[in-house]
């Protein structure tokens, strides 16, 4: 018998040349919440973080929304996920922290997808390795926290 289910959805939207808007939704047997992140490019720094709880278990949960402001100014870099857990998860709500990390761990594939669409229009023959190379040039910091993409280039 099914005793628990959770669905998470993440969407990225290019608001302007230097702002990426990220939406996250979490819905499960116990909780339902959503967040919106505005990310500064190319620095990958969170400009604003807002959210809302729709369903929760205790009367104390909603107060955790106040801790989301602690996310402003955080930079997506090594150690980011631990910082989110420490600043928003433990003192506030660990499901909010989970959702923020779910959104931000997608930053590299999202940047690759955006760059692919951009470059593919100019050159339909472009390979994914060339796209990743371009992404790494624009965002050199990603190599330090995602060896998979670095290794992919070296192959």
């Amino acid at each position: 018998m099914l005793k628990f289910c959770r669905t998470k959805f993440v969407g990225f939207e290019r608001e302007s040349d230097d702002i990426l808007k990220i939406y996250g939704t979490l819905d499960d047997t116990l909780y339902s919440m959503q967040i919106e992140i505005k990310l500064q490019l190319p620095e990958l720094v969170i400009q604003s973080l807002t959210g809302k709880m729709r369903r929760f278990t205790t009367p104390f949960c909603e107060e955790a929304t106040n801790f989301l402001t602690k996310g402003a100014g955080l930079k997506i870099e090594p150690g980011f996920q631990s910082k989110v857990k420490r600043l928003i998860g433990r003192p506030g709500c660990r499901h909010f922290a989970n959702l923020i990390n779910e959104c931000c761990e997608s930053i590299i594939p999202a940047l690759i997808c955006m760059k692919y669409k951009e470059l593919h229009e100019e050159n339909p023959e472009i390979s994914i390795a060339e796209v990743i190379k371009e992404v790494k040039e624009t965002y050199p910091q990603i190599a330090s926290f995602c060896p998979t993409y670095s290794n992919l280039l070296e192959k």
């Binding site: 005793k3 669905t7 993440v10 969407g11 779910e102 594939p109 999202a110 669409k117």
Partner: peptide, 28 residues
């Protein structure tokens, strides 16, 4: 949207208090 990701997890109760957990994810 320039990028989307969906992730879901289902937890099923089995015999002798075992659990079967299935997580699936797809993005671009």
């Amino acid at each position: 949207l320039t990028y989307t990701k969906n992730k879901e997890v289902h937890v099923f109760e089995g015999e002798n208090r075992t659990s079967e957990i299935r997580a699936r994810m797809y993005d671009m």
